[in-house]
């Protein structure tokens, strides 16, 4: 249960991290809080030649609040968000979701950027941030590019990270005053990988009605205009058969798995209605 004998580098700024990445090529692996990569290294499922530790880069531990949202540095932890050290521009959604991730000892080191880049389909951030319409900003030799969170995940454990690129920040739009959100994940044991996740955001001021079916073992199913599925986000207007049909059309063939995901989204919507 010991990792392979890798080399270690601790750059102090993003530029240095990028040049290390460019030099080392594909045998290098970027590490942040090490709460997902750590187990895979210990199990020797991942065997890098060089580990680049980005947690000491000050600019990745910054947050910048703006009138229209917030930019969260890649190395901000789940606990930073849970405890409110990062302002919650999403009416409590960020704090609530952060609080439900794994265990406190993991949240104290696990990072938002690491979670998204690890791209585990059952992770919380990918689903909730997709519902919120968040985006990620990546920096590489060619400069910056910003893409929606749901496009960043290509498939199970595959992020759209080009060679030499690094996720630097996550941008979450500010919800309007009348906005409601719901989030429900189905786990048999607290903190385990979710079996199904449902998330929704209804923000009348901004004309947003989004629903996401997560923990699909692949990319989350994101419905940018979900009015035909969840109406105005009240439980009465939830169309279970339509959600089931959407899941089936997206390749979810097992009826029990589909039902679990329908229920997760229904409970998310019910939670949103009561908020």
């Amino acid at each position: 249960m010991k990792p392979v004998d890798f080399a270690y580098a601790r750059p102090m700024d993003v530029t240095a991290a990028l040049s290390l990445l460019a030099e080392a090529g594909p045998s290098a692996k970027v590490i942040a809080g090490s709460q997902s990569l750590g187990p895979m290294l210990n199990l020797r499922l991942v065997q890098p030649g060089l580990v680049i530790d980005i947690t000491h880069i000050a600019e990745l531990r910054l947050v910048e609040e703006r009138p229209d949202g917030i930019s969260i540095g890649a190395c901000i932890t789940h606990a930073d968000i849970e405890d409110g050290r990062v302002p919650d521009v999403a009416a409590g959604a960020l704090r609530d979701v952060a609080h439900g991730i794994a265990y406190r000892a993991v949240r104290n080191r696990g990072t938002i950027g690491g979670s998204l880049t690890h791209a585990d389909p059952s992770a919380d951030w990918i689903t909730m941030l997709a519902a919120l319409g968040a985006s990620v900003t990546l920096r590489g030799a060619a400069g910056l590019r910003t893409i929606p969170v749901e496009d960043y995940m290509l498939g199970a454990l595959e992020a759209d990270l080009r060679p030499g690129e690094l996720l630097v920040s996550v941008t979450v739009p500010r919800l309007g005053r009348a906005a409601r959100w719901g989030y429900y994940k189905l786990c048999r044991k607290t903190g385990e990988f979710a079996h199904a996740i449902g998330a929704c955001v209804v923000d009348p001021e901004r004309g947003v009605c989004r629903a996401v079916i997560g923990a699909t073992e692949a990319r989350p199913i994101v419905v940018a205009d979900a009015r035909h599925l969840i109406g105005d986000g009240t439980q009465e207007q939830f169309d279970g058969p339509a959600v089931d049909e959407l899941a089936r059309a997206s390749g979810m063939e097992d009826a029990i798995v589909r039902q679990t995901h329908v229920v997760a989204l229904r409970r998310a919507v019910a939670g949103a209605a009561h908020r």
């Binding site: 942040a32 947690t55 000491h56 531990r61 050290r85 080191r109």
Partner: peptide
């Protein structure tokens, strides 16, 4: 802010 235990060190490489 940031992971517990991080942010006290200078640049290094092994």
């Amino acid at each position: 802010l940031g992971p517990a235990g991080a942010g006290h060190a200078g640049a290094a490489s092994a």
